[in-house]
């Protein structure tokens, strides 16, 4: 298999995903198969091919630097689990 548990643990850490212990066996197996499957790309001759940046070859559009949004913090914060005085609450970061 192209991946092992240590590698998958590293990927999960990078992705900020906590996996249960029993999820690892299946994850290692299935992710290895996906990696093996996409490995066939290495056979393609892509010398001198520019990687695609946009499917329609369009450039990124810019907008005028003007204020367009209104402040609706209270309404948006209704979807948050913990807020106080307009701030989002998270566990203590600095002791």
């Amino acid at each position: 298999m192209s991946l092992d548990k240590v590698k998958v643990q590293h990927i999960a850490m990078l992705a900020r995903l906590k996996l249960a212990d029993e999820e690892y066996a299946s994850s290692v197996e299935k992710l290895s198969r996906i990696v093996d499957f996409v490995d066939q790309l290495s056979q393609a001759d892509t010398s001198d091919v520019r990687p695609m940046a946009h499917p329609l070859d369009a450039a990124q559009r810019l907008r005028p630097d003007a204020v367009t949004e209104t402040v609706e913090r209270d309404r948006y914060q209704q979807n948050a689990a913990a807020v106080s005085d307009g701030l989002y609450l998270v566990p203590k970061v600095i002791e």
């Binding site: 990927i11 995903l17 999820e23 992710l31 996906i34 990696v35 996409v38 790309l41 393609a44």
Partner: peptide, 28 residues
Amino acid sequence: KRRIMTGTYVLSAGYYDAYYLKAQQVRQ
């Protein structure tokens, strides 16, 4: 989770050129 981890892997240091960049070339 599988897709997030696949994506994290193909974008991670040391694998980006072999997977992501290569895929964008094949996409072209």
